[in-house]
Amino acid sequence: MSGALTAALVGLALLDSASFGTLLIPVWLLLTPGRLRPGRIVAYLATVAGAYFCIGVLLTLGADAALEAARRALDGIPATHLRLGQLVLGVLVIAWSYWLEARARRQDDTPGRVRRWRARAMSGDGGVGGLMGLAMTAVGLEAATMLPYLAAVGLIAEADITVPLTGAVLAGYCVVMTLPAIVLAVARFAAHHRADPVLRRVNDWLTRNSARALGWTVGGIGIGVTLNAVVSLLVDQP
């Protein structure tokens, strides 16, 4: 694997790490009143990482066939036309991101749904099974919008690496994706009183902005697609 691919995957994993399921719910678990049980956060994060890994394996298995079909469909189209199409797509994705953020502002549901999720996460009821169910529900809700993960799977499939290395890369991605939550958990267990104010600030920021995070993610991907098309068009000019 090249250094550029590794850097791209790490960046996408860190982007994924700030999602509702990978960071906000773990922060709520860490803020649970009373004695904090390490097994709760371990069970939750292991379930999330395992679910993402399985989804990645399934997507990777079908990615090669999808990429080959796309190559055959695009074969014979001039490169300049393809880059222009990519440019249009990037601009449309950026416009879509603004629409998503505007909708999030209009439909801010912090008083309702987010608080119900927070109450469920912090209740302490249901044991490990309940936490694993909560983790699977969070992954399921995010499945339709896991754009960074889909981009990462596409990069891995395009890299044409061996099956064992593909599995190792997917596993590493899932570890990096849960790393911020792991760091906060370690800080919470090691220095409860000093870490608690930090966790509350993280919680406040994520609770206010979690509904808008999808718009930011989509916008970042759109900007990347657009810039890549512009650079390619400039470089390919005779």
Rank of each mutant, 00 (worst) to 15 (best):
G154D: 07
T207Q: 09
A65D: 13
L59I: 07
L61W: 12
I77N: 07
R71H: 11
V198N: 06
I161M: 05
V163Y: 08
L30G: 03
H81G: 15
V42H: 08
V128P: 04
L214D: 01
T207Y: 00
D109L: 09
W96A: 14
F189I: 01
L61R: 13
V128K: 06
G167F: 07
A168P: 04
P197W: 08
P33W: 11
L155D: 00
T137S: 11
T226Y: 00
P148G: 09
R113H: 14
L84V: 12
V91G: 03
P38W: 09
G224P: 04
T226D: 07
L23D: 02
A79L: 12
V91M: 04
A49S: 13
G3N: 10
L29S: 03
R201C: 02
A43Q: 06
A95P: 07
W205S: 07
A7Q: 15
M136R: 09
P180A: 04
V235P: 11
T166I: 11
I161L: 11
D109T: 12
V175L: 15
I41Q: 02
F53Y: 15
S123T: 04
F53N: 09
R106E: 12
R208V: 10
G90M: 05
A159F: 04
I41F: 01
A13D: 03
V176H: 02
W96P: 14
V230P: 01
V88H: 10
L82T: 13
V48N: 04
L100I: 08
A152N: 01
L84Y: 13
G112R: 07
L15A: 15
A73G: 07
P197A: 13
L147T: 07
L206G: 05
P180R: 00
Y52D: 02
L179I: 08
R212Q: 11
G126M: 06
V218F: 04
V163C: 05
Y149V: 08
R201W: 14
T32A: 11
L24D: 02
